[in-house]
Every structure is written in structure tokens, then in C-alpha cells.
């Protein structure tokens, strides 16, 4: 049984699958990174992805254009982000509560909205057509390279975008004046405002960007990964992304590697459940990605603790 598993893992196709599975987690992880950098804990990512996944799909279906779908999902994501910002920064709700509200809206509201707009219940399987799905592209030259071509070429446009964003975000955060201001706001808002940086504005920008990235993740889920919207489709990716952000120490590149780890865990799950005789362990296998998330977080917490154990029993500061 194990040699079966090992055989299927050491294949180009497995690595291809990891990248595909990682993409939506990575979008959400980047969304977590950028808001956290500005000191905004966006735990509403799960709900944002659910809602944007639905709207992305609906926009694409109404216009029969995947581009409009993706843009629509981004727009809805930005609106959700600004809404969370408005509740928290203007009306002074706890940001965690606004996040929970968005998550609950995502869980319950989407089914209602789907039914209202299309009369369908639970999923959009009936509406799927090829031109509303995000197309894949073959990268010239690279697709000719054996093995590497099989792994890297033929992904959806958004998959490439996710990985490109990692480096764009790093450049943005560390090389641009806006990024500098954003990091300053996240770390010491008093310092930032004392030199005239608008803390609120930076936070709004960060959570809107966070929403946009969650929107791309949502669109990726409904318009490519699952080929249609269904309830339970996001399956905790928004939360896994928060773990990826933390494990990646809040840095874009770090978050990418943690996302890949979680992608690997998901891919393993698929592989293991495909093995002969594993059908009866279905629920156990389903747990793999989440167990890996927990183990990953435990290791992360331990490493942080080991570093600071002896020296700082630090007070909890606001």
C-alpha cells in the first residue's frame, strides 16, 4: 500500500496538483499577510471567499465572461473589506467580531443569495459552461522541458498570478512609500500618526487589498477549482490561510512556503483516499490537512517560544 502511495507521490503530476491546490490558500494567506501588516486581523477570510466565490461565478454566468467574473469577485471582496473596516474603524466594533459576522454571512447568506438570484439550492452545477471557467495556459518553452514543464505549465492564469503576487507584495511592502507607511501603522500606529501618516487610511487600504486577494481566491475556487459554486466548497481554507500567515511570520514569502506545505497536505489527502482499501477511513483521511495545520502551528509556536523562553516573560501589551 505504501509503495503505491510513494509511487504516486514521486510523479510530476503530484507536484502539479500541489501547486493547483496551493493557489487558493496562497491568495487567502497573502490577504492575511497584508491586513496583518497594517495591524488588522482579518479573520473574515473564510466568509469573504465564500461570498466572492458565489458572486464571481454569478457575474461570469450573467455575462458569460470569466474576466468579468474574476473582476466582480475582486470588487465584492473589496466592498466586504471596506465594510469590515467601516464597522471596525469608524463604528468601533471589534475587528474580530466583524470578521466573525462576515464568516457567518458567508456560511448562511450565500445559500440564500444563490437561491434568490438563480432559484437553485446548494450548488450551481447546472449553470457551468466552459467559457465561464478560468482558462489554463501553457507557458511556451517551459512546457517543452521534461518533468518541469509538466509541473509548471498548464495552470490557470490565476495560479500564476498568486505566485507572482508573493513577490509583488514583498516589493510593495518593503520598497514603496505606501508599504513603509503600512508597516509603520501596523507596528506602532502612534509613531505613524505623529508624522502625519493617516492610520485609518492605511488600514482601509490594507483591508480592501485583503478583500481583493480573498476575492481572487474565491473566484479561483468556484470558477476553476470546483468548476461551479457549492456550499462547503471553501472548506476552511480561509482559516488555514491565517495559519499560513502566522507560520510564515507574516511575510509574503514565508506565507507562500507555509501555503505550499498545506497544499501538500491536501494533495496527500487526495492521494491517500484514492488508495485501495481506504474508503472506510474516509473521514479520518479528510482530517489530514487540518491535522497538518495544527501540527504546523504547534511547531511554529514552539519555535517562537524556545527563542524567547528564558529571556522574556513579556507582559501582554495592547
Amino acid at each position: 500500500m505504501f509503495d503505491q502511495l510513494i509511487k504516486s507521490i514521486f510523479q510530476a503530476e503530484f507536484l502539479f496538483v500541489i501547486i493547483r491546490i496551493t493557489a487558493p490558500i496562497l491568495f487567502a494567506a497573502l490577504a492575511a499577510v497584508i491586513s496583518e501588516k497594517a495591524g488588522v486581523a482579518n479573520i473574515g477570510l473564510e466568509g469573504m471567499m465564500m461570498i466572492t466565490a458565489l458572486f464571481g461565478f454569478l457575474f461570469a454566468y450573467w455575462t458569460q465572461s470569466w474576466v468579468v467574473g474574476v473582476l466582480g469577485a475582486i470588487l465584492v471582496g473589496i466592498i466586504l473589506g471596506l465594510m469590515m473596516g467601516f464597522f471596525s474603524f469608524k463604528l468601533k466594533t471589534d475587528i474580530i467580531l466583524s470578521g466573525i459576522a462576515v464568516n457567518m454571512l458567508g456560511a448562511g447568506g450565500t445559500i440564500f443569495l444563490l437561491n434568490m438570484f438563480t432559484g437553485l439550492r446548494g450548488n450551481t452545477g447546472a449553470l457551468v459552461s466552459p467559457n465561464i471557467l478560468i482558462p489554463t495556459i501553457d507557458i511556451p518553452l517551459i512546457n517543452k522541458i521534461p518533468i518541469l514543464g509538466d509541473i509548471l505549465s498548464g495552470h490557470a492564469i490565476l495560479t500564476y498570478l498568486a505566485f507572482i503576487f508573493v513577490f509583488l507584495m514583498r516589493t510593495f511592502l518593503y520598497r514603496t512609500p505606501l508599504g513603509l507607511k503600512m508597516r509603520a501603522v501596523g507596528e506602532n500606529p502612534n509613531a505613524a500618526s505623529s508624522v502625519g501618516v493617516s492610520v485609518i487610511k492605511m488600514k482601509y487600504i490594507a483591508i480592501a487589498a485583503s478583500g481583493a486577494l480573498a476575492g481572487m481566491g474565491g473566484a479561483f475556487m468556484s470558477m476553476y477549482y470546483s468548476q461551479g459554486w457549492n456550499q462547503g466548497m471553501v472548506a476552511g481554507r480561509g482559516f488555514i490561510a491565517l495559519a499560513a500567515q502566522a507560520m510564515g511570520r507574516g511575510e509574503p514569502v514565508g506565507a507562500m512556503f507555509s501555503s505550499l506545505l498545506f497544499g501538500l497536505a491536501q494533495a496527500m489527502k487526495t492521494k491517500v483516499s484514492g488508495l485501495r482499501g481506504m474508503a472506510s477511513y474516509n473521514y479520518l483521511i479528510e482530517m489530514i490537512p487540518y491535522v497538518v495545520t495544527i501540527i504546523g502551528l504547534v511547531f511554529y509556536a514552539l519555535s517562537v517560544k524556545l527563542k524567547t523562553r528564558k529571556h522574556q516573560l513579556q507582559p501582554i501589551k495592547e
Binding site: K181, R183, A184, E187, V195
Partner: peptide, 18 residues
């Protein structure tokens, strides 16, 4: 102090007017 610890001295000085 109104400083951002993870930024360099120069970054702190030009913050907001980089």
C-alpha cells in the same frame, strides 16, 4: 518614543515623507 522598532533609523526618519 514614537518609533517603529523593525524599521531602520533612516526609514523612521523619513517615514511619511520618504
Amino acid at each position: 518614543f514614537m518609533l517603529v522598532p523593525s524599521l531602520t533609523v533612516a526609514e523612521n526618519i523619513v517615514l511619511g515623507m520618504a
